[in-house]
């Protein structure tokens, strides 16, 4: 399978701070790759390096067959990049925005192309509305439409659905899958676990380091986490939560409504630690497999343990730098 993105050892520093550290990533053509990680983990910086907006301090690689260091201009022509912040002109109408980006990319028959795009989106009747007056969901769909006007081969999306309602998000993802079916490669960063599960593959980045990469099942399995679920009335769960927190052999306790997820990388130690609580009144235990979120939080806790809390805190917010 040919690779749309193939980079290794990618490093970026802002002053003293290492924002992306020795990152290697391969994304096969035609796949939707989810890019996950806590805030400030270097996702935006990586996306910007891939499309030539930032020059990497170290590492090399190819994007659509072009060298990311020397052929930024060639990459820019074939990449659609959707920024985290809405980056269309709020004081231009929907139609004017699309026409502008079509012209900038030197596309032929701008009028026809814009009309087709707007009709496909169902926005033709609202074409003279200012972009500023669109709802969050429509803004995202319009921004996506602007990104794919020039038929890029690779889409880089930076948290495209932040603050968008579930229906709009579902529509957005349906569109992404249609595009991928046509052969477009998508690298999309997100904080939503349900979106991560819609991806063909996911890459998890924490503090500038790539922790894991693969399908959802592979990532969950690679976390080596064993989880148990305790359900019951809120008061009983709250007491149980307090009792389990910090207990030897228990690495993770997370409340989920009327249930608690309890987990550890050492299944035996977990069993031993939980034994005294197995017969707590009102609590029902069930051995559920870990969710993707459980796996991620566990992975991140692992990095924090090995790298030290201090460094982790220091890098928070680097994403917006």
């Amino acid at each position: 399978m040919s690779m749309a993105i193939s980079v290794s050892g990618l490093t970026k520093r802002f002053g003293e701070r290492v924002v992306v550290n020795d990152l290697s990533l391969n994304v096969p053509a035609g796949q939707i790759m989810g890019f996950l990680g806590p805030n400030g983990s270097g996702k935006t910086t990586t996306l910007r390096m891939l499309c030539g907006l930032l020059t990497p301090d170290g590492g090399q690689g190819r994007c659509l067959g072009h060298d990311i260091r020397t052929e930024a201009a060639a990459i820019k022509r074939q990449v659609g990049y959707m920024t985290q912040k809405f980056s269309l002109y709020e004081d231009l109408s929907i139609q004017e925005n699309l026409a502008f980006f079509a012209r900038v990319h030197g596309l032929p028959k701008v009028g026809v192309l814009v009309r087709e795009t707007l009709e496909r989106l169902g926005l033709w009747s609202r074409r003279s509305q200012l972009a500023a007056h669109l709802s969050g969901g429509w803004k995202q769909r319009l921004a996506l439409a602007a990104c794919i006007l020039h038929r890029p081969r690779l889409l880089l999306l930076d948290e495209p659905t932040a603050g968008v309602d579930p229906q709009a998000r579902r529509d957005f993802w349906a569109e992404l899958h249609r595009l991928a079916a046509d052969g477009l490669t998508v690298l999309v960063s997100t904080h939503y676990m349900d979106e991560a599960e819609r991806c063909h593959g996911i890459a998890y980045l924490a503090y500038g380091t790539l922790l894991t990469c693969g399908t959802v099942d592979q990532v969950v399995a690679s976390s080596g986490l064993t989880t148990t679920r305790a359900s019951g009335p809120p008061e009983a769960l709250a007491r149980l939560h307090q009792a389990l927190h910090g207990l030897a052999g228990v690495e993770m306790v997370a409340p989920f409504g009327r249930a608690l997820h309890v987990g550890s990388s050492d299944a035996q130690a977990l069993g031993a630690a939980l034994a005294p609580f197995r017969h707590t009144p009102d609590i029902v235990w069930s051995d559920d497999p870990p969710s993707l979120e459980d796996a991620f939080i566990h992975l991140m806790a692992g990095v924090t343990r090995t790298q030290g809390q201090g460094q982790g805190q220091g890098q928070a917010g680097a994403e917006h730098g």
């Binding site: 990049y81 980056s87 269309l88």
Partner: peptide, 13 residues
């Protein structure tokens, strides 16, 4: 300031 520069910079301009 409005964040539209990023979108312009990835175009072939």
């Amino acid at each position: 300031e409005r964040g539209t520069m990023e979108a312009l910079l990835v175009t072939p301009i």
